[in-house]
Structures are given as structure tokens and as C-alpha cells.
């Protein structure tokens, strides 16, 4: 167990008194195996109780502690101090408004998530007595990777197109729509397409690929979005060139 003093530079913002954010420096005695979240917890407990940030599970499942660490979108609970040298700069997730300190306003993402209907829409409702909806292992594997999304919004902070065009529905929400579209038990694709195949949907994506590079769960949103583009293109040709074939 070795200890080291870590210099943290944290972006602070108090909406009641500040007109803009400023950096505050903390010298934090840290254990070598700590993550950035441990350092923040130490600051809050022993140095400055006014520091605000979100966290919950400390094990990369809840998706609450996303923040910019040296300019990279990271989960603070997965960012090991031993991988950093010098001053570590901690800021709230990019592209989201700052509520207070490291806490962001995430309403935009939540609204978009609701719009794409990220839940199963079966063709017809069945009574419980009718039994389960069966699915083969191959059918499960088809979309399983996308179920790993923890809604941490790191992909939104990494996506420059979302930063430039805030109405873009964005990587995670479109990926989750794709996850249900690819599910053999689902029949809601047409409803979701109304959102994700619109101009605000997948067509704002220019395949930068940053979303997949920062995703802590290796969901690969960039891949999902390209697949949505290809499928929406096939749709378009079917709808416009084969008028009889209304899906």
C-alpha cells in the first residue's frame, strides 16, 4: 500500500453565486490503487464538503459518475490514478449544462431516450397464461451487446456532432432503439424509425467513432448507428421504389 499526493483540479460552479465555472485545486493524499472517484470522495469527506458530484455503485454498472478526466469522458470509478501523472483535471461531462460542480443536467438525454421507445413492443399483448416469448441463443446474441448500455452518456460527451447539433438524438438512444429493433420478440421498429430515421436521428451521425472508443461497456454505438443507416436506406428504397410493399 503506497500513498501519493494527487493534485486534482476540479471545475466548480455554484448556480446561486457564480456567473461562470472556475477551477479549484485540491491536494489529495491517495492510495496508489485508488480511482478518481475515491479521490473525490476523500475531498468531500475530509477537505471540502461542498463539492457536488453524482456516483452510486463504484463498479461501472450504474453509469452515474461520468465526467471529463483530462478532457476524456470517463467513469470516475474506472479511472485509475496510477494511469495519470501530474495534475488531474476533472470537469463535468461535456455537451451537457452544468447544474452544480460536476453535476450535469441530463434532461435532454432522458427525453430523447423516451422518444425512441426503448422497450419491447410485441405485435399483440398476450395474457400471462400464454407463456413466455421464446428466443433462441442466436436471436439473443444478435442484440445482446447493446443491452450492456448503462446510460452513462460518455458517448454524448465524446460525440462532436451532438456538441455541434444538440437536437441530434445521439449515440446511446439510437443504439437502444436498434437493440429493440433487432430483438426477435419486438414489432415496434416502424414506430422507432419515425424518430431515429428522421433528420434529427441517425442522419446527423458522420461516423466519427468517438462514442465507441469511450464506451466503458464496449457497446459500440458507432456500429449500431451505421447498421441503422444501412437498414433505413433499404427501407427508403422499398418505400419509394416498390410502392405496393408497405411493410
Amino acid at each position: 500500500m503506497s500513498e501519493r499526493i494527487v493534485e486534482l483540479e476540479v471545475l466548480r460552479f455554484n448556480p446561486e453565486t457564480d456567473s461562470e465555472p472556475r477551477f479549484q485545486r485540491y491536494s489529495v493524499p491517495c492510495m496508489n490503487e485508488w480511482v478518481v472517484l475515491d479521490a473525490l470522495n476523500h475531498v468531500k469527506e475530509s477537505i471540502d464538503p461542498t463539492l457536488s458530484y453524482r456516483w452510486s455503485c463504484h463498479m461501472a454498472v450504474c453509469g452515474s459518475c461520468g465526467m471529463m478526466i483530462n478532457g476524456e469522458p470517463k467513469l470516475a470509478c474506472k479511472a485509475f490514478l496510477r494511469e495519470y501523472e501530474g495534475v488531474i483535471r476533472v470537469e463535468p461531462l461535456a455537451h451537457f449544462p452544468i447544474q452544480r460542480d460536476l453535476v450535469t443536467v441530463i434532461d435532454d438525454f432522458v427525453t430523447k431516450l423516451k422518444r425512441v421507445k426503448p422497450y419491447l413492443i410485441p405485435k399483440e399483448d398476450q395474457p400471462v397464461e400464454a407463456g413466455e416469448f421464446w428466443q433462441s441463443p442466436a436471436e439473443l446474441k444478435r442484440y445482446k451487446q447493446y443491452t450492456l448500455c448503462i446510460n452513462c452518456m460518455l458517448c454524448y460527451a465524446a460525440c462532436p456532432e451532438y456538441g455541434l447539433v444538440p437536437k441530434f438524438i445521439g449515440p446511446a438512444a439510437i443504439t437502444l432503439a436498434h437493440r429493440y429493433n433487432e430483438d426477435s420478440r419486438d414489432s415496434g421498429r416502424e414506430e422507432r424509425q419515425q424518430e431515429i430515421a428522421s433528420n434529427e436521428g441517425v442522419w446527423e451521425c458522420s461516423f466519427v467513432g468517438a462514442c465507441s472508443e469511450v464506451c466503458p461497456e464496449h457497446v459500440d454505438p458507432a456500429g449500431a448507428l451505421q447498421q441503422v443507416k444501412i437498414k433505413s436506406t433499404v427501407d427508403w428504397y422499398q418505400e419509394h421504389l416498390l410502392p405496393g410493399s408497405k411493410k
Binding site: Q193, Q194, E195, A197, S198, N199, E200, G201, W203, K229, I230, S232, T233, D235, W236, Y237
Partner: peptide, 15 residues
């Protein structure tokens, strides 16, 4: 939301 007509130009771009 209406579906986009971008598939025309994107399809040609991809091809």
C-alpha cells in the same frame, strides 16, 4: 417526426 430523405444521398455516398 418524418423520416428523412437522406438515404438517397447517403446510399450513393456509401456505394
Amino acid at each position: 417526426m418524418a423520416k428523412s430523405n437522406k438515404p438517397i444521398v447517403w446510399g450513393l455516398f456509401a456505394a
